[in-house]
Design a protein around this nucleic acid. Structure first.
Length: 715
DNA sequence: AGCACGCCGACT
DNA sequence: GTCGGCGTGCTC
């Protein structure tokens, strides 16, 4: 956990112009037969980190000159090809960036080149030398200076957090309830840092692209547009290159972004903020499955930057890592916990109301008390939010006569009924078709939706509130925000603007509306049927549900002055068949610490994370037996070879994934668990080669791919 | 991953 | 008779 590559005198080495061999990282796939680094001839000794173009087979690709990987470097072919050219004008990537890339590749079981090249803007690969030179000559945007903002005094809690971040080393876990002003603390820390050191840079990450505009707005208005760049996958390639170059050159002092930004080259990096650190979006779910939050911790440690994680509902991993020292545990955790329990302006947390759906008429969607509460709010001119984590109209259609269901032909999942365009759509593979006029199996024209999604909720709510009038006598306005309604570019921003402008009375949506957006006039938030997560097979489901409901509750009553004027507390409604479940009890008291303590006790007793370390190996194949057979064979080969670390590692039998077939591919996975992270790492590293040779065995013909997920979020 | 080479079906 | 399907194989 401490590479801190010593600063070599790169300039001196680069000036040596004897012809020599250089090691280059290129974009090779994870488990290809090509080794980690390729050797090339060069007329001059190139400094590690230099961007070069090198010939590879029939094409020419971008590569990064790497430090000689100790001299066990496989004897290269006799005839080395020559480096085709150096990308002029771009400084070599620093030793700390290379150390981060090397660590991520090792830890997440991917090739160095894959991580390194994926961390660079795509245009570096495609632009020719002339285009590149032109790009570099382009003057940086001359933006206006930051507005001299009258800074509002920090609350005592905010000030205490700021002071501790300023004076201690960290890493820090800022545990601040929604509305406690975490962002203002980030801003002050960044400000202090930039003022103290003219070369310092700060990296601030948020979980979703959707949240970057409002963050950018706050940072730009405080620091000026010249200092701030964004880095996320919603940007065009030219924009991304521009931001990346600004960060790499040190010209941009602040980089805002999503998980990919953790790999930004920042020579002056001195502070990393991970906002909403519990959010699952920080874990990449395809390709290299890295956790940007965990890499941020590692990177900060390696390069001496402070790291601040922030959340109102921290991940249990971070909560556990920030436990204070106690008599039984004099060391405590590695992180320093900073608590900010109060809402700014003394705005009260919403009152939580549970409706026991067992007491309601069968198949009730909106219970009478909830409907009455919504009606009352709307009549008073207030806004309500209704949360349902399922888009579409109904999750499945079925025939009333035979047992036909709208199953996806390519996946082991139902196709979801979307009434808006009368389509059936599979949310796993995207396969879509028109709703049949009659049952495809028996011809019965009576096919009916089962269950409900946001579309149906919107429709039912409209019917239920049809007779209700707003204060001025006009009808109630209902809107829906989910992945379907926001597909078009800019749709989310314009829909949010409508809500902010007060043009919507009741907003229906998926968890998309629970995250971060600041709805100032919302006085009621309702979760219509959140119970699904209570009895999920995924041991992290309660944690996620609690975070989602807390976050949703945090949408209500954010405007303290308005709340005071209003005179009544905001409300968070939960319709449930299990009103006394510990998750809801903890929610009612807004008591994350109690919830976390209870969950951690369970996890400890069951030896689950954060008290154990896990990895998944997944196999995709034409048939389920092939997928499972590959995993079984690889596990047996590991045992037969007595791989290092094996004695401290448990390999579980392969099982099909919950959705076992997607787009015609059968999927199975195997859980690997250990109480020791190093043992798990040793084992996985050694197993990599075994997995590769197992795959080569023709017995496993039909295997499509295999992949390793270290520290998986869902099992 | 690309991009070759290589051996079997429907078109000018 | 060619154009083109994607099934193995290689890239310093």
């Amino acid at each position: 956990m401490h590479p801190k590559a010593e600063k070599e005198d790169e300039a001196e080495r680069a000036s040596d112009d004897a012809p020599c061999t250089v090691q280059v990282a290129v974009h090779t796939p994870a488990h290809s037969a090509i080794g980690e680094l390729l050797s090339y001839r060069s007329a001059t000794l190139l400094a590690p980190g230099t961007l070069v173009r090198v010939p590879l087979g029939q094409r020419e690709v971008l590569g990064v000159v790497w430090d000689r990987a100790d001299d066990t470097a496989a004897q290269a072919p006799v005839q080395l090809r020559a480096v085709a050219g150096v990308l002029g004008g771009v400084a070599p990537l620093g030793a700390d960036w290379r150390a981060l890339v090397a660590f991520a590749a090792r830890y997440y079981q991917r090739s160095l080149g894959e991580i390194a090249l994926a961390a660079l803007p795509a245009q570096l690969r495609t632009l020719g030398p002339e285009q590149m030179a032109r790009r570099l000559r382009r003057p940086a945007t001359q933006a206006e200076q930051a507005n001299a903002i009258e800074l509002i005094a920090l609350s005592a809690e905010q000030e205490s957090a700021r002071a501790q971040i300023s004076s201690k080393i960290g890493p820090f876990l800022m545990f601040g309830s929604t509305g406690s002003g975490k962002t203002e603390v980030y801003l002050r820390c960044v400000q202090e840092l930039l003022q103290a050191d003219p070369a310092a840079q700060a990296l601030v990450m948020v979980p979703e692209i959707n949240l970057t505009p409002q963050l950018e707005e706050r940072f730009v208005s405080r620091f000026g547009a010249a200092q701030v760049v964004s880095l996320h996958s919603g940007m065009t390639n030219p924009q991304r290159l521009k931001s990346w170059l600004a960060a790499h050159s040190g010209q941009a002092r602040i980089v805002l972004g999503t998980r990919m930004a953790v790999f930004a080259s920042m020579p002056g990096l001195a502070l990393i903020v991970v906002d909403e650190e519990h959010d699952a979006s920080y874990k990449q779910q395809e390709g290299a499955r890295y956790s940007a939050r965990d890499l941020a911790i590692w990177r900060g440690h390696a390069c001496g930057a402070k790291v601040v994680l922030g959340s109102a509902t921290p991940s249990l991993e971070s909560w556990h890592a920030s436990r204070p020292p106690s008599p039984q545990d004099p060391e405590g955790g590695r992180y320093l916990r900073l608590a900010m329990p109060s809402r700014i302006g003394a705005a009260a947390l919403p009152r939580v109301r549970r409706v026991d759906m067992g007491q309601q008429p069968h198949r009730t969607v909106f219970s009478a008390p909830l409907l009455a509460a919504i009606t009352e709010r709307v009549q008073r001119g207030e806004q309500c939010m209704v949360l349902l984590n399922r888009r579409g109209y109904a999750p499945v259609l079925t025939c009333s006569d035979c047992d036909w269901k709208s199953d996806c032909p390519h996946c082991s999942a139902h196709q979801v009924f979307h009434k808006i365009d009368r389509s059936l759509r599979c949310h796993h593979c995207g396969f879509a078709q028109r709703v049949p006029r009659a049952c495809p199996a028996c011809g019965n024209p009576d096919i009916v939706p089962i269950g409900r999604g946001t579309e149906q909720l919107e429709e039912q709510l409209a019917a239920l509130l049809a007779g209700v009038q707003r204060a001025d006598g006009s009808p109630v306005r209902i809107a829906r925000i989910d992945a379907d309604s926001t597909r078009a570019a800019g749709a989310l921003q314009s829909q949010l603007a409508q809500v902010h402008a007060g043009e919507v009375d009741v907003l229906v949506g998926t968890q998309m509306i629970a995250k971060g957006h600041d709805f100032r006039r919302v006085s009621l938030v309702a979760a219509v049927q959140p119970d699904g997560a209570l009895f999920s097979s995924d041991f992290r489901a309660p944690e996620r549900l609690f975070a989602l409901l807390m976050q949703a509750a945090g949408r209500a009553g954010r405007d303290a002055a308005w709340m005071a004027e209003r005179g009544a507390p905001c409300e968070m409604w939960v319709q449930t068949y299990h009103p006394t479940h510990p998750v809801y009890e903890a929610l009612r008291r807004h008591d994350y610490p109690a919830f976390a303590a209870q969950q951690l006790t369970e996890r400890q007793q069951a030896s689950m994370p954060p008290f154990a370390f896990q990895a998944l190996v997944r196999a995709d194949a034409r048939t389920q037996p092939v997928a499972q057979g590959f995993l079984t064979a690889a596990a047996e080969a590991a045992r037969a070879a007595a791989l290092p670390g094996l004695e401290h590692v448990s390999l579980y039998p392969p099982v099909p994934l919950v959705v076992q077939r997607v787009a015609g591919v059968e999927r199975a996975q195997m859980l690997i668990e250990s109480s020791s992270r190093p043992a798990l790492q040793h084992f996985l590293a050694a197993w990599q080669g075994v997995l590769r040779s197992t795959r080569a065995d023709p017995v496993h013909k039909g295997l499509v791919r295999w992949l390793v997920d270290v520290d998986p979020l869902a099992i």
